[in-house]
Amino acid sequence: MKWSGTHQGLVELASIPATPENVLEEPALRILPTIDSDPARFLASVVWKTNGIGSTAQLQLFEWKDGQPQEVWTNQESIQQVSYRMSQYEAESAWMEVPSYHYKERVPVSKRIYDSLAEGTVEERAVTAYGIQDYDRDGRLELAMVKAIRTGAVPLLPFGLVLEFYSLDSDPPSKRMTIPLPPAVVPYVETGLATGDFSDLTTGPTIVQEWAKQYLVTQKGKDVYWNLSSK
């Protein structure tokens, strides 16, 4: 599939050789709804096969201005550093806190690791999955992305992926929520990203009850939606 248009971003995507060997999801353009006289917006995407994490999504958001597309956002920014800290070591465990994720739980850790890595950073790296749906039932579309977390040689965190939601009403898209993803819920979340239907979470892992207690999600029967407006 080839891109049409003159914007450098489109040309850049078109120049990457798309073959069955390296492409998991072919390049695509998605036209986004606009309000009143707002410029037309569209999302360009391609998903690559990636060793180690399975897939990497490349996303670019454009607006049509002055007769040509102009890039307003891309997920190809530099790697993000996220701070963590451990405290109150006792009996091969300690409290692990990642403030930007609103995460705090007691995790298993050796005394040697605690003494040498009690504070530091982890890296938000590639986007492994994404979706565009009305995830909070407010009648507007949001962008959701699953991002891989790299902790280095020592697996400090009990999760390797986070789920992020972005509002598409702002320019550029603004982050609304970040949630760590335990391994057991990843397949359910990735399915929900594509369809907007997270009802499988009610029959799968029990974490949906924990998320509801934290007011991250609302559950009505089998319907599960995200409380993004309160974040």
Rank of each mutant, 00 (worst) to 15 (best):
Y135W: 05
L117T: 13
Q58N: 05
S167E: 09
V185K: 10
Q8A: 15
V186E: 05
E77K: 02
P39H: 06
E63C: 13
R137Q: 07
V72Y: 00
A40F: 07
G221T: 07
T206K: 09
M1A: 13
I31L: 15
S83E: 15
S100F: 06
K222H: 09
V72S: 03
G120P: 04
K104R: 10
V146K: 02
P173D: 15
Q214M: 07
L61T: 07
Y114C: 08
L161T: 11
F42D: 14
V46R: 13
G9I: 08
A18P: 08
A194T: 12
W226K: 04
P183S: 15
E210P: 02
K222I: 01
E90G: 01
L157E: 12
K111V: 12
T218C: 08
P205E: 02
G131Y: 03
T19L: 14
L13R: 00
P155S: 01
S93M: 05
E124D: 08
V162R: 04
N75L: 05
E77H: 01
I79N: 09
R41S: 08
A40N: 03
Q88P: 00
P108G: 00
T218S: 12
W73C: 08
T56V: 04
G221W: 07
P99Y: 02
P99L: 01
D200S: 15
S110V: 02
L228P: 01
W95Y: 05
G152H: 11
V186H: 03
Q133F: 05
A144S: 08
D197L: 11
V154Q: 08
Q70R: 14
T50Q: 13
Y101G: 00
G9S: 10
L201E: 03
T203F: 13
G204A: 14
D134Y: 06
S87H: 01
A91M: 14
T19A: 14
A18C: 15
T191L: 07
T202D: 01
M1K: 10
S15T: 10
P33Q: 06
S230W: 06
G160P: 02
E142S: 03
Y135I: 05
P155A: 02
R41Y: 02
E90F: 04
